[in-house]
Design a protein around this nucleic acid. Sequence first.
DNA 1: CAGAGTTTGTCGCAATCCCCACATCCGTGC
DNA 2: GCACGGATGTGGGGATTGCGACAAACTCTG
Lengths: 266, 266
Amino acid sequence: MARAPADHGAMKRKLGKQARQDRIVAELRANPTVRISALARAFGVTTETVRRDVDALSREGVVSRTYGGAAVTALAHEPSLDERANILVEERTRIANCAVSFVQPGDVLMIDSGATTSHFVRRLAVELKDITIITNSIGHAAVAGTNPSIKVILAPGYYVARERGTYGPEVAEFLRRYRANHAFIGAGGMTVEGPNDVSAELCWVKRAMIERAGSCTLLVDHGKFGNLGLEVICPLERVTRVITDSPPPPEHQPIFLKGKPELVIG
Amino acid sequence: MARAPADHGAMKRKLGKQARQDRIVAELRANPTVRISALARAFGVTTETVRRDVDALSREGVVSRTYGGAAVTALAHEPSLDERANILVEERTRIANCAVSFVQPGDVLMIDSGATTSHFVRRLAVELKDITIITNSIGHAAVAGTNPSIKVILAPGYYVARERGTYGPEVAEFLRRYRANHAFIGAGGMTVEGPNDVSAELCWVKRAMIERAGSCTLLVDHGKFGNLGLEVICPLERVTRVITDSPPPPEHQPIFLKGKPELVIG
DNA sequence: CAGAGTTTGTCGCAATCCCCACATCCGTGC
DNA sequence: GCACGGATGTGGGGATTGCGACAAACTCTG
């Protein structure tokens, strides 16, 4: 593979132990794995030295040791969205399947980033044609973009790795220039006050989407009912429809009493 | 290639190929790395068989190969089903290594999407701290975003799957609201007229970045000299510096005669 | 049933890695 | 100066892995 012959940035001078270990974890941010032999060449030290570094980092739990090198530890990498995407797959797939039935060719959708909505987008990319998706999630864009008949518009802003999407005032301002038929958004919790989530920046994006869409469908699994996050996204009346996987517990049925958010069970 | 040998659950003694590979990725959800030898023992097959499985998964980008095993992929890294990213890695890595030496902490960079610039961003994410990156590439954003000390601003627009980035008038308009120290851009070709590329929409993004940056560095491999694409991006004088991997052929040396674009060989 | 194609096993050698013991270098404090 | 501990380099034996080539077993199809 890529040799490092008298490497440019590496031969500056001898790095100390700390500097080497920092470089190793940095390298693992760019590449999923590193090899001891390659690092030794790059640092201009012996493989034994690198081996000791890697072993030390491994003991600290910063990296995960492999035969011949090291890899990113599963937890340190993307505990956030990645882990969340792998739980409740069954339920979320049901929600997603149900949600696509409300979408028709020609629709313009706003979809916020999130684990549940990502299943929804995956189904959209498979089943539907001639729709436009406006989103702040690069994951959604990448998935939906594989379908050439789906037009994807990505919102700008500060990129937040944890959510794999853009956030900040730019997003809301950008969204205000568009108008959509529907907004499909997720939420961290759902009470009689309305949908809520844990982070203010997440809420602002969802709010902007709801504001600019003709109607709003909430995608939440049954575990979200009763959760109270930091901030309420919008009053209950602004939500047109709630799609979930199984009936909410009786104590939260009052949410749908007035029939204002329509309840759909996938 | 995409054949599923319809294995029912009756396979208790020996697992089929598909079942093994599924088990491997499942194993990787629990442990950050697996070893071929261990898997071979667990499955009751030869290490060669597991090696083939792992190699296959690695080619698909599902796992990342290590010496003696496999590791979880960084998810941000692999989605390069793009064959262009896998050629000239040697040359592009050299260019990227050279380019990072021109960047200092505190810099604000505009970087356009492209195969060559992606190597550059990867190095940036490893070696530098406290910089701001403004880009239209979701790949760049995902990679740079793993480094918490790098601020990433993503430009809006129509998402183009082929380029894994945003394009269209929105991009240029958005960029106009920022000001950067440097622009690092790639190009499909390079002649005495200046850098060029094959698609008008690509050119408009590059143009906007050059316009809004104090100086502009072009990252091109040696094969690009003499290529004439559809559209010239900007006159030669607007380019501050050209970084390439090996000296351009003599017939294209005139590009650098006036010393206006500085020539740097990585 | 035959034949083509796929999957897996076997074998051997070269390359690589691990581990251990010991030597060397260097800065620090006495 | 000198002892000392930490960090690093050296060298070799032993184990593991990678790779290519070939054969055996199996699957599918006509």
